[in-house]
Design a protein around this nucleic acid. Structure first.
Length: 281
DNA sequence: CGAGGTTCTACCATTACGTCA
DNA sequence: CTTGACGTAATGGTAGAACCT
């Protein structure tokens, strides 16, 4: 952003200390290698979580959720429900499949036999895509699926292969879809956090601009005061400080403060409006 | 032991689909 | 009915780490 270039640069250092991870958090690669350890960045960023509503039981298979929640539904999810009802049967993954067959082949190598079976079904269904066109169909996750994924994301923002498998089975989705959802979810979280950071920095910038303006004004006033007040004429300029809040001129040193109306600033100090509204007092 | 290849995953930018006003 | 905006599932590419030869 180039804060150093900002026209109101007063030498103040702006420190953005958010409890949130930075915009490029350290990557946690290969969680599969540490399947039994918590992922390094598995702790969700609580500040950015939207509240989520969980309707289903965590252990409840997805087709049960669908059946129980959408009996006589008649809403926009009906189509998706049908898709997932179909998906519950072994030969009907086509509705949710837009899988690239090349990836399937690549991934099959190390998948567990169970997952391979799922993936094979998916790829076969994909090949048989209704009209034979390769147009990808976009799946719309149901509320229950989203809720469960959200729940899971709150617990850990990344998944190890076992967790992914379990979640996929629970939701009646392919592991790849769960993986993608988590990727996109992390991206959304990050985007949201970036927006928050941006807003915060804008406010900082505004505050600092105001502060700079005010300090300039004070400086002008001090200069005028210095010219009009013979009392100050023998005082070195550096010994004068003024409290920006109460606008009183300080004395020399802290111990001399009681004796003298002036204060000596031990060193140039800039105060932070966010942590110290009136550091000079 | 180091080099090169393979595999896996996270992340990113982008695309494209579904929904809604 | 059409259209544009928006949310988000999905894709393709890249980089880093672990493992293998």
């Amino acid at each position: 952003m180039g804060f150093d270039d900002h026209p109101c640069n007063t030498g103040l250092v702006l420190g953005l200390g958010l409890p949130q991870e930075s915009t490029s958090p350290p990557k946690a690669h290969n969680p599969s290698r540490f399947a039994n350890k918590p992922s390094p960045n598995s702790a969700p960023t609580s500040a950015t979580f939207e509240p989520s509503l969980t309707l289903g039981l965590p252990g409840e298979p997805y087709h049960q959720l669908v059946a129980s929640n959408y009996k006589g539904g008649g809403n926009s999810h009906e189509e998706a429900i049908d898709l997932y009802r179909q998906a519950s049967s072994p030969h009907s993954h086509s509705a949710v499949s837009s899988f690239s067959s090349g990836r399937v082949v690549k991934r099959e190598r190390d998948l567990s036999s169970e997952e391979v079976e799922v993936e094979k079904v998916s790829s076969r269904a994909s090949d048989e895509d209704e009209d034979g066109s390769n147009a990808r169909k976009k799946l719309r996750l149901t509320k229950e699926q989203s809720a469960l994924l959200e729940e899971s994301f709150k617990q850990h923002s990344t998944l190890n292969p076992k967790q992914k498998q379990a979640l996929a089975r629970q939701l009646n989705l392919r592991p790849r879809q769960v993986e993608v959802w988590f990727q996109n979810r992390r991206a959304r979280t990050k985007l949201k956090q970036t927006e928050v950071d941006c807003e915060f920095l804008k406010k900082c910038c505004e505050t600092l601009t105001d502060e700079n303006r005010r300090l300039q004004k004070e400086l002008q006033e001090l200069k005028a005061l210095k010219l009009s007040q013979p009392l100050y004429m023998h005082m070195p300029a550096a010994t004068l400080t003024m409290c920006p809040s109460c606008e009183r001129i300080g004395g020399v040193g802290s111990e001399g403060a009681s004796k003298s109306p002036f204060s000596m600033a031990p060193k140039p100090h800039f105060y932070n409006h966010f942590t110290n509204p009136s550091a000079a007092c």
